[in-house]
């Protein structure tokens, strides 16, 4: 398979194509232009599109995000990079108080189309303040979309959709996915807000995003060997949340496990469980969440591995909950 697309290349290509397609698109952030990004996700864009449209900024998250908002309501379609999602609290005002509310507060005079790209997630030994998942911080904000792709194809087609979207979008790139290779997308853009069934099964639905989708798929293979067929739903977007897709799946499986890489309390898994329960309580024989302990992400490899809801943890959780036979 010669022509596999790397996740970071998918990001770069989506930006490159949208910069070429629409002159209103601009891209800026810390170390993104001449250096090409600390995760090497944006090389060559500065050379291809020039410094008026692709530029490096000061280390000023308030200014980067607030300026993106101001530019968006004056006709540009800015894409910014907040290097690590852990820095998003500094960008939060521009996103939450300005961009996300603009469409409503202005009485629909204009939307604020910004895309905030940010690398997130644990597993890379980056420690507590370079490993977080910010979904729960933002999922409670009306007017803001949140996307987290799991494959290079989705990364490309969803980023293109995010840039074309008239609403502010938080586009989350799990750092453990940057080197993942996969097929190129079959469609130019993928609609934001549509989940995808990535493995069919009749016994249990596992809903997840980003790296957790891969863990869920691997866990499903192990469980299949024990006679339990899990259906894996890649949510792809956390707001809007594709509740109907999950309801359709549990209508078949009657059981739902939501896997979240983030603290259990107040996490997005709780929101999904609540919504599915409200809509399809009668279909549910069992529903539960697998998330992290309510603690910061530890640094030491054995501690971090144990902390995260990876493949083994998913398998163990299902076995314990559903009493699937232990051992081979």
């Amino acid at each position: 398979m010669a022509d596999k697309l790397e996740f970071r290349r998918a990001i770069r290509d989506a930006l490159d194509e949208e910069l070429a397609r629409d002159e209103r698109v601009v891209f800026f952030g810390e170390d993104v232009a001449k250096p090409g990004g600390v995760f090497a996700a944006t090389p060559g864009l500065y050379d291809a599109h020039g410094e008026a449209r692709v530029f490096d900024t000061p280390i000023s998250e308030l200014a980067i995000t607030g300026a993106a908002f101001g530019a968006a309501v004056c006709g540009l379609r800015p894409v910014i990079e907040i290097m690590f999602a852990d820095f998003l609290p500094l960008a939060m005002d521009g996103m939450v108080n300005q961009a996300a509310k603009y469409w409503y507060l202005s009485n629909e005079q204009a939307p604020a189309p910004i895309v905030v790209r940010s690398a997130y997630g644990a597993g890379g030994r980056f420690g507590a303040i370079h490993s977080q998942s910010p979904v729960a911080w933002f999922q409670n904000v009306p007017g803001l979309k949140i996307v987290a792709p799991s494959t290079p194809a989705d990364a490309k087609a969803l980023l293109k959709a995010a840039i074309r979207d008239d609403n502010p979008v938080l586009f989350l790139e799990h750092k453990r996915l940057y080197s993942l290779k996969g097929d190129a997308p079959t469609e130019e853009v993928t609609t934001i807000g549509e989940a995808k069934v990535v493995r069919a099964g009749g016994d249990l639905t596992i809903a997840a995003v980003a790296t957790s989708v891969h863990h869920a798929l691997a866990a499903a293979e192990t469980l299949a060997a024990k006679g339990l067929e899990a259906e894996v739903v890649d949510l792809r977007s956390l707001r809007p949340l594709d509740v109907p897709a999950v309801v359709a799946s549990v209508t078949k499986t009657n059981r739902l496990l939501v896997v979240e890489e983030g603290p259990l309390t107040g996490g997005w898994a709780g929101e999904l469980v609540a919504q599915v329960s409200e809509h399809a309580l009668g279909e549910l024989d069992d529903v539960w969440r697998l998330a992290t302990d309510d603690l910061p992400t530890p640094y030491s490899p054995p501690l971090e591995d144990d902390f995260l809801p990876g493949t083994e943890a998913i398998v163990a959780s299902v076995r314990e909950r559903l009493g699937v036979a232990a051992g081979a």
Partner: peptide, 28 residues
Amino acid sequence: IDLGNRLIGCFGIIGGSISAATGAALAL
């Protein structure tokens, strides 16, 4: 907010006006 009259917004967060105008200048 009254875009038709060039007012991109009034900002209830201290400094919000500064960043909004900075971004507006980028667009202009």
